[in-house]
């Protein structure tokens, strides 16, 4: 655990020196909710009809924003590998007395803490400013969902970061992937009203699983059985990503 905490301490020191990074980590998704969410909420008027229920767009979009912040945090953290590689410190880390898994775990533990803080801020803003009705009794599960989600995406993106050597290539790949994954998921709109080909793709997108699971936990939309299925699916995605990330890290020099 000492090794993991040393990584967390190092990440904390780095973030402390960079207010812009901190701003990105904590505020960007929140602003997304307040600007994009509010605008769409007004545009749609009476909200979204999903099955028999009518859901205000802001409430629907909240879990999308949480997923977005998970993905954004993970993207930020995986980009840190490039900064570390440019500084040379990345290779030195690999000679420190810790396993590759501890190194990755320390990095993600810090980012998960950030994601939970971000989640709390977003939910607080959603409740206080946008009057979204939250299932407060499940808040801890929402935090857990954020943690698992951020970890899953971090390990997945870390694989990309280890395999790609060029900063500009990484940025292009990640931004395109982000764009595609976001719009081929349930983040912005309900899937039962989209073309069947898009729905089919969205159903195998882990971002959909995470978003829908968080939606179930925050506003109660969806069934328990699909929630369990999505949690299991994302769990498998997380485990697989972690395994590949450690393997890729072992060959990253």
């Amino acid at each position: 655990m000492r090794e993991v905490l040393a990584v967390v301490f190092r990440e904390y020191l780095i973030r402390r020196t960079s207010p812009t990074w901190l701003f990105f980590d904590l505020a960007v998704p929140l602003l997304y909710l307040l600007m994009f969410g509010v605008a769409f909420d007004k545009a749609l008027g009476h909200g979204l009809r999903i099955g028999d229920a009518v859901v205000p767009y802001n409430a629907f979009f909240l879990s999308g924003v949480l997923s977005m912040s998970s993905f954004g945090s993970a993207m930020n953290q995986s980009y840190g590998f490039f900064v570390d590689r440019d500084n040379g410190i990345f290779y030195e880390f690999l000679t420190y007395p810790m396993t590759r898994g501890q190194f990755l775990f320390g990095k993600i533990l810090f980012q998960c803490l950030m994601a939970v803080v971000q989640c709390f801020l977003t939910i607080a803003a959603g409740t206080l400013i946008l009057h979204i009705e939250i299932r407060w009794e499940l808040l801890l599960f929402v935090f857990a969902g954020m943690t698992v989600g951020t970890a899953g995406w971090f390990f997945f993106l870390a694989i990309v970061a280890f395999r790609i050597r060029r900063n500009d290539t990484f940025n292009t790949v990640i931004n395109v992937a982000y764009f595609v994954l976001m719009f081929l998921s349930s983040m912005f709109y309900p899937l039962d009203q989209v073309p069947s080909w898009l729905r089919a793709i969205a159903w195998v997108n882990p971002l959909t699983w995470q978003t829908d699971a968080l939606r179930f936990l925050t506003i109660g939309l969806g069934s328990f059985s699909s929630f369990v299925l999505q949690v299991l699916g994302f769990g498998a995605f997380l485990a697989l990503s972690f395994w590949f990330a450690v393997r890729t890290l072992q060959k990253a020099v």
Binding site: R10, L13, I14, T17, S18, N87, G88, I89, Y91, E92, T95, Y96, P97, M98
Partner: peptide
């Protein structure tokens, strides 16, 4: 790794 310390060939320092 528990028994070694390394100065790698590349400059390795936390710039920030």
């Amino acid at each position: 790794r528990k028994n070694i310390c390394v100065v790698i060939q590349e400059n390795a320092i936390e710039l920030y």
